[in-house]
Design a protein around this nucleic acid. Structure first.
Lengths: 237, 237
DNA sequence: AAGTGGTCTAGACCACCGA
DNA sequence: CGGTGGTCTAGACCACTTC
């Protein structure tokens, strides 16, 4: 039996992303016509359109009226939008990945943070080495209030997106984030994890992330390799 | 005759925006249910949903499953705003200043840059050490097409804002900029100018700045001290 | 002219929220 | 429970691109 819990259009969306990630669809390639996809996956054309529309909004696909739907070239045309690591790497034409470093539940290290996260003291801490094309790109440490996300610690996180889990299982969507970005030299532990020489500087991101109700649900700290990563942004007067 | 060229859902979208702009719908207010809007404007519910979906994507409306559709509370998402060095330092509570390093007119170092700036080959180069509270903060190098800004090289620039001169004397306003931000180790010359140890990493900003007509009028390169400067930004989904 | 995406309909049932 | 948004269908015709 097909587990029908996931909406059809989300399933198709995921299948399309997988085809792109596996290289079956390359940037510039044409997708099959909507009517054909509808027949192929046994759904109505409107449902196909919903899947494609979301991917167009995420800059993964491009529609050309009268011509076809294409896999986007990775040009990074957008301003700075809030994205997960996976989404951002895909936009840059790289394959995102993860290696779990640490997964634990701790008492809140500071009353301040406990209050921010409304955590009542207990925090779930997830530390992952983030990969791009199988090479280390960043160390990401997320802190979440465990009382809001029961059983989150039981997930695997090697091949799962944290934000997707939060959105689909806990109905929490990230809508806004505040970041402070600094430049530092890596600690010995960081340079080892990232597999870089100790002379390579790194970006430090400190982020608080807000959900759809404007509550903070995550405090994160990321360390990005300075030799592989650059920030691109568009700003307005 | 009603010119029906505009799609129905775009028409509804515009009507909703107008209601919000006129204050008939205020932030936090509930919209009429989708089914009601459909009847009211004589269109199908799917068409109503398309109008609402676009406004949700633009952060104008918020949908709450099982509850209703609401006018969003916060205003237009604004990431970091385009500011001059002086403006930014004042915002951070510091006193901005300048020390002139170099001021010259050169032949364009690359055909590419000449084309970007429509400079016909000659560039005005301005290199300044930027101070905050009388201490070095950044090295800023601006390149401008001299044919657009005749006599700009005769200005002093020690106590004048470049962008203010451009706006007041040449009627050029900055409206948009694209930045690439990298992290590097300083060159010996940079560490000496910035008065920092060679072990302190620095931010490298590469910026192209657009005027009110969407033409590039400046290419700039800045080096910021990593021990004094941090980027603060707010980003939206 | 043929084929594509763009718009639109008139229903249906499901999932979630609040009283 | 009733009312809301969320998903989905099986069509239809229009607008655009490509040939």
């Amino acid at each position: 039996m097909n587990v029908k819990k996931r909406p059809l259009y989300k399933q198709l969306k995921q299948k399309l992303i997988q085809k792109i990630e596996r290289g079956e669809l390359k940037p510039g390639d044409v997708l099959p016509p909507e009517r054909e996809l509808a027949e192929l996956f046994e759904m109505s054309r409107m449902t196909v359109r919903q899947a494609i529309s979301e991917l167009v909004n995420e800059y993964v696909l491009i529609r050309r009226h009268g011509s076809g739907t294409y896999v986007a070239e990775h040009k990074i045309p957008q301003g700075k939008k809030l994205k997960s690591f996976s989404e951002e790497m895909r936009l840059r034409g790289m394959l995102p990945g993860s290696k779990l470093c640490e997964k634990k539940i701790v008492l809140s290290p500071s009353a301040n943070m406990a209050a921010e996260l409304k955590s009542e003291g207990k925090l779930f801490i997830l530390k992952r080495l983030r990969l791009a094309d199988f090479e280390p790109m960043a160390i990401e440490t997320s802190m979440l209030p465990i009382n809001r996300f029961a059983n989150l610690e039981k997930r695997n996180f090697e091949n799962e997106s944290l934000y997707e889990i939060l959105e689909e299982e806990y109905n929490v969507k990230m809508t806004k984030a505040q970041q402070k970005i600094e430049v530092k030299m890596p600690t010995p532990q960081e340079s080892e994890l990232l597999d870089i020489n100790y002379t390579i500087p790194v970006f430090h991101f400190k982020q608080v992330t807000f959900d759809q109700n404007d509550n903070i649900f995550e405090v994160a700290h990321s360390v990005y390799r300075g030799d592989r990563y650059e920030i691109e942004t568009e700003i307005y007067r």
